[in-house]
Design a protein around this nucleic acid. Sequence first.
DNA 1: ATGGCTGCAAACAGTTTGCATGCCC
DNA 2: GGGCATGCAAACTGTTTGCAGCCAT
Lengths: 145, 145
Amino acid sequence: MSRLKTRRNTRQREAIVDVLRHSRSHPTASDVYGAVKERLPKISLGTVYRNLDFLTDIGRVRKLETSGTEARFDGNLDAHEHVRCVTCGKVDDVFLPEEPFRENDVDSASGYRIIGRRLEFVGVCPSCQRKTEVEEKETKEQTTR
Amino acid sequence: MSRLKTRRNTRQREAIVDVLRHSRSHPTASDVYGAVKERLPKISLGTVYRNLDFLTDIGRVRKLETSGTEARFDGNLDAHEHVRCVTCGKVDDVFLPEEPFRENDVDSASGYRIIGRRLEFVGVCPSCQRKTEVEEKETKEQTTR
DNA sequence: ATGGCTGCAAACAGTTTGCATGCCC
DNA sequence: GGGCATGCAAACTGTTTGCAGCCAT
């Protein structure tokens, strides 16, 4: 008979879960690595990746495969969406008033068995908006000068 | 005075646009490379990347990206969504009956200036469903044996 | 004590980039 | 002819993996 793999609670794994749970910033794997390293200086990046994978598999964290290059992780499992700043890459939470659509709205002609969806908004965060304004002002001043 | 860069119509660029326009399969950069290479055997992968970038910038093609996977490109600009097979990576078109939500549904508390959204469904394509069924059947037979 | 997990480092895949040359406008 | 675009190859980034030793159960 096949037996489930027994999973262990290593200090590394616990530390990673802890970092994720107390973070609001949707850290990347290397952000997590940096944070955990303060507690466990010998931890390796490989271990971080392996655990983030594992935790995603068992549904303990959400992996946000955003449009950027690096994947980001979220310890908050409550239903919510994300906005990503095109300029600086920052990711924030977004709460929609209601579920925008159901998965079975997806035209069944495709024949796919739908198991989920990825939704992400793209925009410019407040701080990058300010920077752009300043730059535009400067450019204008130069042309009029 | 700043002048717009004059853009050129090189044979490479035209060939790439052409491949994208006649493809229904949402090719990856290296798919495009392979296809264009039949016409222009000396084209380099770097050129393909540079042009796909450029074409995305000017809005001539859509780039479908998910972190961790290869980006795919779509020459069809009509409003539609995509399903991606978790098993084989294939991407197909999905046509929703109506626009699922408006961008200003996004809670304005975030302060972001929203400029777009990315939506992608995730599932198992028909051919991978069949493969899974076969595997499960085999496993079952083994246990009962 | 057993075998899942770790640290380390090397390997990988996809993509980007520097440079000399080519060719479109 | 000027300068954007190309071909080539090397470099980079994020992620994965093989292996020997470690440690939670």
